[in-house]
Design a protein around this nucleic acid. Sequence first.
DNA 1: ATCCTACAATGGACAATGTCTAAGTCAAGC
DNA 2: GCTTGACTTAGACATTGTCCATTGTAGGAT
Lengths: 138, 138
Amino acid sequence: MSDLLERLRGRGWRMTAQRRVVAEVLDGEHVHLTADEVHARAVGKLPEISRATVYNTLGELVSLGEVLEVATDKRAKRYDPNAHQPHHHLVCAQCGAIRDVHPVGNPLADLPDSERFGFSVSDVEVTYRGTCPNCAAA
Amino acid sequence: MSDLLERLRGRGWRMTAQRRVVAEVLDGEHVHLTADEVHARAVGKLPEISRATVYNTLGELVSLGEVLEVATDKRAKRYDPNAHQPHHHLVCAQCGAIRDVHPVGNPLADLPDSERFGFSVSDVEVTYRGTCPNCAAA
DNA sequence: ATCCTACAATGGACAATGTCTAAGTCAAGC
DNA sequence: GCTTGACTTAGACATTGTCCATTGTAGGAT
């Protein structure tokens, strides 16, 4: 995590309390938070931090490739701090819980040229959906 | 089209002008429209249709499995009328254009039991990202 | 053909999420 | 310790989606 702060400083980031707090929140829990959840936790550490700043900072982290945006199906985007190890997601259709998963094989290779329509394909995101043990029990 | 309307009637749907219009809009263009885009086109055919009705109808079509919700990464969900042939999506990161694609292989089989965490996995959605020919040219 | 009634549509308020701006603040280099 | 431009703030605004009370109507019953 100081890793993260180091990398950011190296990229010319001005280090402010707000940015540090956002980075800490993301790094602290390896869950997938929405922007407003990040904001709520950030307020816990730095009460006067504003929502706009959290949104801005998250956007910057995403452009820098330090954090991934995940669009599962909920309304809000979620932010995934685990950006440096490729992985995919398993989502509970009922409660929305998200787990990181690592399927075997390379889905990118499964898309033949004839199905690429002239796109240069750079990335693939796989979302498995199902029911988690908790919801299945209920 | 009439296929769709037939199926819906068979399922006990009450056939109203509004529902017919929404079905027509979805069936008419095999693109992936947002709810508000569907509404806009529906208004063209039936000016007094309300936004709530379009949202309701889309929700019903989704529960019936006639239409798929697609969460690519834009803010709004998109609706995919091509629900009866399994397929995935190729999205242009710049302009947001979406194409249906058919990768080879079965990604569901690529998720080993050890990576399922007790979930019963029922579905998988694959989103390829890249740059479309138009945006690459620009 | 007309009536009934449950189901559907309406519109407008509300909620959730995200974006923008103008003005104030501060980190970091000098 | 200054200065400066990047950063933050608060809140207005925009977009997307949901809810509810009221009104309308499709389709079966008569």
